[in-house]
Design a protein around this nucleic acid. Structure first.
Lengths: 190, 190
DNA sequence: CCTAGATTTCAATGATGTCTGAAACTGGCG
DNA sequence: CGCCAGTTTCAGACATCATTGAAATCTAGG
């Protein structure tokens, strides 16, 4: 595929000389991913794509990060499902290239949306099911109901916020951060 | 307080007949804890203490949840460090009782504060260290710097919010939820 | 100072989830 | 039609982390 012309093919892929800063970023990003419940190698793949902004092949990922082909494949699929990595096809090229979402705030927005779905939304069905089973008679039922009310208050507020500012396409994240700064300036308490 | 008179001491501990709703709550809470990075048995212990609101002994926890003494001990220590469970000493009683924070929103506040420390704050040192290493010359250095700027914007905003509304003692959580509802009503975009 | 009830610690075990590597699959090209 | 570059799948190896249980430690009372 690169022997097409037969002349001066000395530099096959000048895409990937990483700087020190970039390497550090990848390492730390992967380390943090642990406390996020994200597999290390998945975080590495994403960090590499994110930080370079380049379109890379599966082999680039494998050699640069020292992971297996199978791992790279499955990881990329997941990243794609999350919507933070996209496939690209090059003319006259069989193999696929992968590129990461470059808008940092959109990335955070996506991550938060996914985690809200995993970690906050289930609380709502918890509340619903528990409500269906509290018998008014129980000694602790009043306290319990109050707790359920508070949980629901929390979840619905987060929900409203998310559906307003965290929708897939938009740049709602930036407006959300803006709104927060406004909240901060008045200096209401203490 | 009920064996005071010395007569009819037939029921040693009437603290713990759990209702169906309470049992369900504990089960689900523990299940969700998995996606939170919290050990299952730790979530169970906390859920039991939280949902009943009673002061329970280590043995209560062990028999009700079917966990070992060692596990109960270490788990309680951690919950104590997080500030959502407290020890109590009863007069004329050697063994300790444990009781959970009962204010639901204060609980969420604590959880969010802890997770921010684990998951958001490290981003700041990542940014700082990376900045120290970007050489202005690199081909991608401009893009990289922009990303670092955005990450820092995100972290500092979250930080400001947290230090204003999520401080240990206060009921800042309620005011935060209130502020969010305000944000929602105007209906700025789309 | 000793004893007994209660708690903490920690090495060994068990469970859970990630990663690898080889085999199966896909689709384009000679 | 069959080969080849590339991609996906999956069973088993491996690593990580929670949990146990017994031994060490602690503390109040005798």
């Amino acid at each position: 595929m690169m022997s097409e012309t037969g002349e001066v093919p000395p530099i096959p892929e000048p895409r990937l000389p990483l700087t020190d800063a970039e390497r550090l970023f990848i390492e730390r990003w992967a380390l943090m991913a642990a406390s996020w419940g994200v597999p290390r190698s998945m975080a590495e793949v994403h960090a590499l794509l994110f930080v370079t902004g380049e379109a890379l092949t599966a082999d680039d990922l494998m050699t640069e990060l020292g992971i297996s082909r199978g791992n790279a494949s499955m990881t990329i699929r997941t990243l794609e499902e999350w919507g933070i990595v996209h496939r690209e096809q090059r003319a006259n090229e069989r193999r696929e290239y992968f590129r990461a979402e470059q808008d940092t705030l959109a990335l955070f927005s996506t991550v938060i949306r996914i985690r809200k779905g995993r970690e906050v939304d289930p609380l709502l069905s918890l509340v619903t099911e528990c409500r269906a089973r509290v018998e008014a008679g129980g000694a602790r039922s009043a306290q319990f109901t109050r707790k359920l009310d508070d949980i629901q208050l929390f979840v619905t507020t987060v929900d409203a916020l998310a559906s307003r500012h965290l929708e897939p396409g938009g740049d709602g994240m930036r407006s959300l951060l803006g709104a927060f700064s406004l909240l901060d300036t008045p200096g209401g308490e203490r």
